[in-house]
Amino acid sequence: MAGWFDPRRTNIERWAYTFQRVTGLAVLAYVVAHIGDTSFFVGGPFGEGPSRASWAAGLSVTESLLGHLVLVMVVLVVVYHGINGVRLILSEYGVIFDKPSRPDYPYRAKSLRAVQRHLIWVAIVGAILAALYSGGLLLG
């Protein structure tokens, strides 16, 4: 599995690929946990309807410094995964590449110098800005 996490001395798209996997797994883990914690609104696994007491108990766990730090991290990885995902869809539909053409020395790959490369930076910067915003909201 080392090949998935070995982006040494290659291209930024390889980093984007590794991040996309890691953030995807992180978001899935959070979503499953979030479906668990939101169920406290109806009293947890054995509840029967909206319950103020159960919801307050649930919030007492999630509304903590640790809970808020997790939320900020989730915002960071969700925004990255989303923007980078849009880049991948556009790339896989081949719409943000130049047409193929006869290659010339020094043979720089066109697919790695197209608009898609800028979108990786949009994803990184967007994710950091969103995390800073939510951090100011939740931790500030």
Binding site: P7, T10, N11, E13, R14, A16, Y17, T18, Q20, L88, S91, E92, Y93, G94, F97, P100, P103, D104, Y105, Y107, R108, A109, K110, S111, L112
Partner: peptide, 23 residues
């Protein structure tokens, strides 16, 4: 293929396999 693009980064002939695979 998830477009990690390393194939194209290392190709010595400018084939750009990643572009071919996305197309």
């Amino acid at each position: 293929c998830h477009f990690a693009g390393t194939c194209s980064a290392v190709c010595p002939k400018g084939v750009d396999p990643a572009l071919g695979i996305q197309l």
